[in-house]
Amino acid sequence: MFNKISLALSVTLLLSACATSPTGRTQFAFMPDTQLNQMGLQAFDSLKRENPVSTNQRHVQFVNCVSDAIIREVGGKWEVVVFEDNSLNAFALPGNKIGVHSGMVKFVDNQDQLASIIGHEIGHVLARHSNERVSQQMAVSSGMALIQAVSAPQTAMGQTALGLLGVGAQYGVLLPYSRLHENEADKIGLDLMAKAGFDPRQSVTLWQKMARAGDGQQPPEFMSTHPAHATRIQELQNAIPRALEIQKQAVAQGKQPRCSK
């Protein structure tokens, strides 16, 4: 009897796990989005409690200006926070939360490079990559303990949960997205920044700059969780002509962001 119930639950789980990403890829993601959003909210609240929020108004206004332009293309209400941290990092969490470190704000040369980063991170959220990662982990571990652990980020389980959501380096845990997820976030992010009127060519310049920043030394935190390979830059370059057409249409519609660093 127990085996029959287990089999039925397994079949139900597999059927409910069938989902499709924005690029048309089949996903294994069975967690309710409301649950992931709650995890994202808890994680973001923990980050704001334990990490200083920037009071540099130039940085805050610059990040908000870029974020707002992209968010208009996505829809919904998003919270954007600049953290006072010199590391090169940025992230977006389920529940529509975006975090950008001040080090990344200083690192980028212009609005378009920051748009590339923010678009990429939002791409992870839109493609439900955290849901996939948490679903896979829950399929082989103690599920509820993982969900509840987000509220205790200093614990080992809490660190794992934060890493699955796409953040956690602050606690010594780096769980890089898969190459598949990275490629998908790149595509979605490139389209988003172009639709908002930003120059998609700057995404290539940004990753080239990232690669130089990690040359011969410890790679920047952002590169540790978002590997920048020559193949990635090449794939972005291949996608630029299409993205430029999207940007051209956006500009014709009056979308011309003017965000000063």
Rank of each mutant, 00 (worst) to 15 (best):
N110W: 05
V74E: 02
A243V: 06
L47R: 09
V63P: 00
L236M: 11
V167P: 01
D215M: 13
M223G: 01
Q137F: 13
P32D: 07
H229V: 11
T26D: 13
L180M: 14
N89M: 04
K255T: 03
V251R: 13
F91R: 01
C259L: 00
M193N: 02
M138K: 06
A8M: 14
V80G: 01
E245C: 10
R201N: 11
S21A: 10
G119T: 07
S21R: 09
A185N: 05
V108T: 10
N131F: 10
G172L: 03
V108S: 05
D109E: 15
H229M: 11
G119F: 05
R242T: 14
S178D: 05
A8G: 15
S142W: 12
N110Y: 04
A145Q: 15
P227D: 01
V63H: 00
E79I: 05
Q208A: 06
L174Y: 12
L88I: 09
V80Q: 01
H229E: 14
Q154M: 12
F62V: 00
A17F: 07
T225S: 11
V66K: 00
K248F: 08
L164E: 01
C259Q: 00
Q208M: 08
W78N: 01
L114H: 03
R201S: 10
F30W: 11
N37Q: 12
D45M: 13
R25S: 09
C18V: 15
K255C: 03
S102M: 10
E84C: 08
P32H: 06
P153A: 01
I147P: 02
S135D: 02
E245Y: 07
Q38G: 14
G189A: 03
F198Q: 02
A156Q: 13
